[in-house]
Amino acid sequence: MRTEPALDPVAGGDVAGIRSNRPSLGPRIVLYVCLGIAAIPFLFPTYWMIASSLKTITDIFATPPTLWPTSPSFAGYAKAFTFQPFARQYFNSIYIAVVVTVVTMLISSLAGYAFARIRFRGQNLLFVVVLLGLLIPSEVTIVPLFQIFEKLGMINTHWPLLLVTSLGAPSVLATFIMRQFFIALPGELEEAARIDGLGRPGIWWFVAMPLARSALAAVAIFTFLNAWNLYLEPTVYLSSPGLFTLPEALTHYVDPYSGPMWNVQLAAATMTALPVLIVFVIAQRQFVEGLAQTGLKG
């Protein structure tokens, strides 16, 4: 029997060929430089926000503008907590975003598993009806929802934010993502779980959910960001400063003449944006992997 000669890694073999296919250092440096230049229009506004939060109002409107404050000051950060109950508003945004994220993950995983793994009459039609929720703008439903919550006595409470956000369009998109993931699961896993005596709830919890961690991470990230950035709903449903969330609170930093306090607004905006940016940078890999495994990569 004829055998192929073994490849000797020490002598080179195919290893040298593989290495030769890798881009050399020069093109990689050029690529990174081009990517860095392309990122400037996206990163500069964030840098300008942080730098201007350390300036006085006079320095912000100085001509020519300065890229860094001549005398950095954290007075704007201190004033952000004195003009409004900013700490309370920060807590409001955190707990609303966390509750909405947890509820959305639970509902979307249950609905997505049902649409993907359980066969019932009218399944596809019902799923299309659910997806139609993505086509309805929130501005269209805000008036009837306000009337409903007003009759229930929930105006100027956080209940409308929790319910509308958990059951609205973000939940529909999360359901779609989870369904796409669960469709790809091998049927043999469910058969093995049934042999071990698990029913549908047990299969969902002990088999499907552990395997769906990447999809759940993607759902958690975009749901949290959506709930964190809510502006229309808090503006409509809330009127007490102590109940405000951060996006609404940012618009209330004004002077006695109703003019914006730019350095204080920018300081509050920096404290609002940085935690979300940090979380996204840390978890972006899980976010991309989750979308890729559900077939939503573009």
Rank of each mutant, 00 (worst) to 15 (best):
residue 225 L to E: 13
residue 188 E to I: 05
residue 200 R to P: 02
residue 230 L to D: 15
residue 253 Y to R: 00
residue 251 T to V: 04
residue 260 P to M: 09
residue 236 V to L: 11
residue 256 P to I: 12
residue 242 G to V: 10
residue 249 A to C: 04
residue 219 V to H: 05
residue 211 L to R: 06
residue 244 F to T: 07
residue 238 L to N: 09
residue 246 L to V: 11
residue 209 M to D: 02
residue 240 S to Y: 02
residue 188 E to L: 05
residue 238 L to Q: 11
residue 209 M to T: 14
residue 244 F to N: 13
residue 205 W to Y: 05
residue 210 P to E: 01
residue 242 G to D: 15
residue 192 A to F: 00
residue 252 H to L: 07
residue 229 N to Y: 08
residue 190 E to S: 12
residue 190 E to M: 06
residue 248 E to P: 02
residue 197 G to L: 02
residue 193 A to C: 04
residue 258 S to I: 05
residue 190 E to F: 06
residue 230 L to Y: 08
residue 248 E to V: 15
residue 245 T to I: 07
residue 216 L to Q: 14
residue 233 E to N: 13
residue 256 P to T: 11
residue 183 I to L: 15
residue 252 H to W: 06
residue 246 L to A: 00
residue 261 M to R: 06
residue 247 P to L: 10
residue 207 V to S: 03
residue 220 A to H: 00
residue 201 P to N: 07
residue 203 I to N: 09
residue 227 A to W: 11
residue 253 Y to H: 01
residue 188 E to H: 07
residue 224 F to T: 13
residue 206 F to I: 00
residue 246 L to I: 15
residue 241 P to I: 07
residue 201 P to Q: 07
residue 192 A to I: 03
residue 240 S to I: 05
residue 187 G to E: 13
residue 220 A to V: 00
residue 261 M to S: 01
residue 225 L to G: 06
residue 206 F to Y: 12
residue 246 L to C: 03
residue 243 L to E: 08
residue 187 G to Y: 04
residue 198 L to R: 08
residue 242 G to F: 06
residue 224 F to L: 15
residue 257 Y to I: 09
residue 191 E to R: 04
residue 241 P to E: 14
residue 193 A to N: 05
residue 224 F to G: 11
residue 210 P to M: 02
residue 242 G to A: 13
residue 208 A to N: 02
residue 236 V to I: 15
residue 233 E to T: 09
residue 231 Y to T: 09
residue 245 T to M: 12
residue 238 L to D: 12
residue 224 F to Y: 14
residue 253 Y to F: 15
residue 213 R to V: 09
residue 234 P to W: 10
residue 224 F to H: 08
residue 258 S to D: 11
residue 228 W to L: 08
residue 185 L to T: 11
residue 213 R to S: 14
residue 234 P to I: 12
residue 227 A to G: 11
residue 206 F to M: 12
residue 241 P to L: 07
residue 237 Y to Q: 09
residue 258 S to N: 15
residue 249 A to W: 03
residue 207 V to D: 01
residue 209 M to Q: 14
residue 230 L to W: 06
residue 200 R to V: 14
residue 229 N to T: 10
residue 233 E to S: 10
residue 242 G to P: 10
residue 223 T to A: 01
residue 180 Q to W: 03
residue 220 A to K: 00
residue 186 P to K: 08
residue 194 R to D: 04
residue 258 S to Q: 14
residue 216 L to D: 10
residue 207 V to I: 11
residue 218 A to Y: 03
residue 214 S to P: 02
residue 181 F to L: 00
residue 246 L to M: 09
residue 211 L to M: 11
residue 242 G to Y: 10
residue 245 T to S: 04
residue 240 S to A: 13
residue 244 F to S: 06
residue 213 R to P: 01
residue 189 L to H: 04
residue 221 I to F: 00
residue 217 A to L: 08
residue 202 G to E: 10
residue 210 P to Q: 03
residue 218 A to H: 04
residue 217 A to F: 01
residue 231 Y to G: 09
residue 239 S to R: 15
residue 242 G to N: 15
residue 182 F to H: 10
residue 221 I to G: 01
residue 202 G to D: 09
residue 208 A to F: 00
residue 208 A to Y: 02
residue 253 Y to S: 00
residue 204 W to T: 01
residue 207 V to N: 02
residue 189 L to G: 06
residue 219 V to T: 10
residue 211 L to I: 01
residue 229 N to W: 05
residue 228 W to K: 08
residue 237 Y to K: 08
residue 245 T to L: 03
residue 187 G to D: 13
residue 193 A to Q: 03
residue 248 E to H: 06
residue 242 G to I: 09
